[in-house]
Design a protein around this nucleic acid. Structure first.
Lengths: 107, 107
DNA sequence: TTGACATGATACCATATGGTATCTAATAAA
DNA sequence: TTTATTAGATACCATATGGTATCATGTCAA
């Protein structure tokens, strides 16, 4: 079973969502990420920990620096969970998807 | 701009996500929803308020009952926000979508 | 070696959050 | 008209959360 909760929890904070966007442009050290926000490095670090708990980012050590990188794959289960509801949308993708999965050609 | 925050916040709690799933099967009164969970009606009511703040559910009064119904449309911006990252997934939908949006036919 | 720098860890604080218990108001039914 | 039912409002509580300040540690460079 996929642990959705830590990912959903991590996404609930706007700063953390901004961090994910940032990391989608390039990997960054803790200091580089912190430099983009109006809060202390410690606060940013805490957000990074929550993102890590949600498996939304990966970290690797390089000397005295810790490099944070996006793990977008972990967003997939969240995307799919929400995607369940697309059947209730007016402009939905489900018709398209099922059509293609059946090997048919859309009009 | 779409107010993503109240929706993301509402989705961060597992009980609230369960409530959304419940309401996707049928509209329910507060009491009916509460009957599905191991917590007081007051606690469930609080969750319903948060879901309402996120615009994820709509309510209408019928006599002394309040009927809650899913507003799946409000999940769309959340879905799209996460969908931004699909370009980083191995098995992504973006190629397919852009192809179709250009009126082309997938292979 | 010594100092500067990047990070991590910890203690602390105010507020938000998720829950309960309890009370009031409106409506349906006897 | 009573009485039971459904819901909303409020007070209260323990814990989680988002933030700060501060200190310890490892690593790079002079």
């Amino acid at each position: 079973m996929t642990a959705l909760q830590p990912a959903f929890r991590a996404l609930a904070d706007p700063t953390r969502r901004d961090i994910l966007r940032l990391l989608s442009t390039s990997d960054m050290t803790v200091g580089q990420v912190a430099g983009k926000f109006q809060m202390t490095r410690a606060a940013v670090k805490k957000h990074l920990v929550v993102l890590e708990e949600g498996d939304l980012i990966a970290t690797r050590r390089s000397g005295r620096e810790t490099i944070n990188s996006l793990n977008a794959q972990a967003l997939r289960p969240v995307f799919d969970w929400i995607g369940y509801f697309d059947r209730f949308w007016d402009d939905r993708l489900s018709d398209l998807k099922s059509t293609l999965e059946n090997g048919e050609t859309p009009e």
